[in-house]
C-alpha cells in the first residue's frame, strides 16, 4: 500500500467521483490500497447505510450502532492492505461488522446492568423514542413508527437466526457469502434463514392484517421510488 498521492487521471473531483461510482467494490479497495482517498470515500458512501442498517437491527441502540458502523469503516481503512480478493469485499466488510457486533453483545451479556423480571430483558436497553432533531414531517413519523414495530419484531428473533436472516434479507448477501461471514455450514445457513423467516412472519402477522399499516407501507415505497427516479445532484 502506497498512500503517497491521489494519483488519479481526473483533474475535476466531480469527474473523479463519477468514475469511481462505476467501479466494483473490489476495484475501489485496490485503489484505497494504492492511496486514493477518494476511493475510500466512495466505499464509505456505499456501505455506511447498509452497515448501519444491519448493525442497528442487531444491537437496537442507535448510538451503539453508529459507533460500531464507524469502527467497521475505520478498520476497513486502516487494514485495507490486508484485503485480498479471495472473497468479495462485501463479505469482508460484513465479517468485520458481525465480529464487532458479537463481541459487543458478548460484553453486554457478561455484565448485565440491571436485573429485570421482563421475559425480554433486552427491551430495557432500548432508549424510549429518542428525539429526532431533523424535520418533523408526518412522513418521517409514519416511517419511524413502522420502523419501530419492525425493529421490535426483528429483535425478538434469536441472535443465531437473526444474523444470517438480516445478512440475507437486508444486505442481500448470497448464501455462500453468509457462510463465509458466519462460519456456518451452507445447510445450517439455509435452515437458519428459513427458521428466522417463519419466526419473523409470526411476529409481524398482526401487522399484516392491519390495513392502515399496509397502506403506510405502500406510501413509503411510492415515496422511495419517486426519490430514486429524481435526477442525482453532485455535491
Amino acid at each position: 500500500m502506497n498512500p503517497s498521492r491521489d494519483n488519479t487521471p481526473f483533474e475535476d473531483p466531480r469527474q473523479q467521483r463519477a468514475a469511481l461510482r462505476d467501479l466494483r467494490d473490489e476495484d475501489l479497495i485496490v485503489l484505497v490500497q494504492q492511496g486514493q482517498k477518494r476511493a475510500y470515500d466512495e466505499i464509505v458512501s456505499r456501505y455506511k447505510g447498509r452497515l448501519f442498517s444491519f448493525i442497528m437491527r442487531m444491537v437496537k441502540d442507535p448510538a451503539l450502532a453508529e459507533e460500531l458502523t464507524q469502527e467497521t469503516l475505520i478498520r476497513v481503512y486502516i487494514h485495507a492492505a490486508k484485503y485480498r480478493e479471495i472473497a468479495r469485499f462485501s463479505t469482508w466488510v460484513f465479517t468485520i461488522a458481525t465480529n464487532l457486533v458479537r463481541n459487543k453483545m458478548r460484553q453486554r451479556s457478561r455484565r448485565p446492568l440491571t436485573i429485570s423480571l421482563n421475559p425480554a430483558p433486552e427491551d430495557d436497553e432500548m432508549p424510549v423514542d429518542p428525539a429526532d432533531p431533523r424535520a418533523d414531517t408526518s412522513a418521517r413519523i409514519e416511517r419511524e413508527e413502522l420502523g419501530r414495530l419492525i425493529a421490535e419484531a426483528t429483535a425478538k428473533i434469536p441472535e443465531r437466526y437473526r444474523v444470517p436472516f438480516l445478512l440475507r434479507e437486508v444486505e442481500q448477501l448470497s448464501y455462500e457469502e453468509i457462510q463465509q461471514v458466519t462460519g456456518l455450514k451452507l445447510g445450517t445457513v439455509r435452515s437458519r434463514i428459513n427458521r428466522a423467516r417463519t419466526r419473523f412472519r409470526l411476529l409481524i402477522k398482526p401487522m399484516l392484517k392491519n390495513e392502515t399499516l399496509l397502506a403506510e407501507l405502500e406510501e413509503i415505497e411510492a415515496r422511495a421510488a419517486a426519490e430514486d427516479n429524481r435526477p442525482a445532484t453532485d455535491e
Binding site: 448501519f52 413502522l146 420502523g147 423467516r197 407501507l217
Partner: peptide
C-alpha cells in the same frame, strides 16, 4: 410483505 417491510424501514444515519 415481510421483505418489503424490512426494505421500507431501513434505519437512517444521523446527518
Amino acid at each position: 410483505t415481510g421483505r418489503r417491510l424490512l426494505a421500507a424501514t431501513e434505519p437512517q444515519l444521523p446527518d
